[in-house]
C-alpha cells in the first residue's frame, strides 16, 4: 500500500527550506492525495506559505524530497509542474485586463466552453468573464484565481489561506467549490489557520509544527 500512496498525489518528506540565512522550514512531512481535501493546519507564521511555494518550486527546498506521483518534482520542467499542480496565493494578484484575459493567459487555444466551465467550477457566473480584473473584491479575486488555475487542467490544487479576509458566506462558497472540485477527482490542499473552515470542509488534516 505504501507504493500505491506514493504513486498518488504529492508527498513531501523531511523537507527543509532556508531563505537567506534563516532556516524557515525543517523536517516537514506532508501528503496530498487525489480526490480529497487536505487541510494544512498551523498558526500564522509557521511556514505554510513557504511549504506550498516549495511544492511548486517557486522556492527551492534544500533538504528532504518532494514527489509527484512518486517522481521527484525536480525531474519535471517547472512550467509543466506548475500546470499540473495549481497554486493560488493568499492574496492572488490579478493580471492586467479582464477576467477572461486572466483565464486565457498563456492559453491561446482555450475555448469559450472551457473558460465558462472554469468559471462555473469556481462558482462564478459566466458574465464575470468581461469584468475588469482589478475591479474585483477580495472574494471575487480568490475565485477568479481559482478559475484561472483550473484552466490549466491541474491534478492538484494548493490554496494558501483561501478564506482570509472573506466573510462567512464567501468562505462557505469557497468550501463548496473545493468540495465540488474534489468530487471531480482533484487533490486539494488548503493551508489555513481557520479551524471552523477546516472542520467544515477538509477530509484529512496535516499539522505543521
Amino acid at each position: 500500500m505504501a507504493g500505491r500512496d506514493e504513486a498518488e498525489g504529492m508527498r513531501a518528506r523531511d523537507v527543509g527550506v532556508t531563505l537567506g540565512e534563516r532556516r524557515v522550514l525543517g523536517g516537514v512531512d506532508l501528503r496530498i492525495p487525489r480526490a480529497q481535501v487536505t487541510g494544512l493546519l498551523a498558526p500564522s507564521g509557521a511556514g505554510k506559505s513557504t511549504l506550498l511555494r516549495a511544492l511548486v518550486r517557486l522556492i527551492e527546498a534544500d533538504a528532504g524530497s518532494i514527489t509527484l506521483d512518486g517522481e521527484d518534482i525536480r525531474s519535471f520542467d517547472a512550467r509543466v509542474l506548475r500546470r499540473r499542480v495549481g497554486f493560488v496565493a493568499q492574496t492572488p494578484a490579478m493580471l492586467p485586463g479582464s477576467v477572461a484575459d486572466n483565464l486565457r493567459h498563456g492559453l491561446d487555444d482555450l475555448t469559450d466552453d472551457a473558460l465558462t466551465d472554469a468559471l462555473h467550477a469556481a462558482s462564478l457566473d459566466e458574465a464575470f468573464a468581461e469584468r475588469e480584473a482589478d475591479e474585483l473584491s477580495g472574494g471575487e479575486r480568490a475565485r477568479v484565481a481559482l478559475a484561472r488555475a483550473l484552466t490549466r487542467g491541474p491534478e492538484l490544487l494548493l490554496l494558501d489561506e483561501p478564506t482570509a479576509a472573506l466573510d462567512e458566506g464567501a468562505a462557505k462558497r469557497i468550501g463548496e467549490t473545493l468540495r465540488s472540485l474534489c468530487d471531480r477527482g482533484l487533490g486539494i490542499c488548503v493551508a489555513t489557520h481557520d479551524r471552523h473552515f477546516a472542520d467544515a470542509w477538509v477530509d484529512r488534516r496535516e499539522h505543521l509544527q
Binding site: 509543466v80 506548475r82 496565493a89 494578484a93 493567459h105 498563456g106 488555475a149
Partner: peptide, 10 residues
C-alpha cells in the same frame, strides 16, 4: 504578486 501569478500559470 503578478510575476508569481504568471509563474504559477506556467
Amino acid at each position: 504578486g503578478e510575476i508569481e501569478a504568471r509563474l504559477c500559470l506556467g
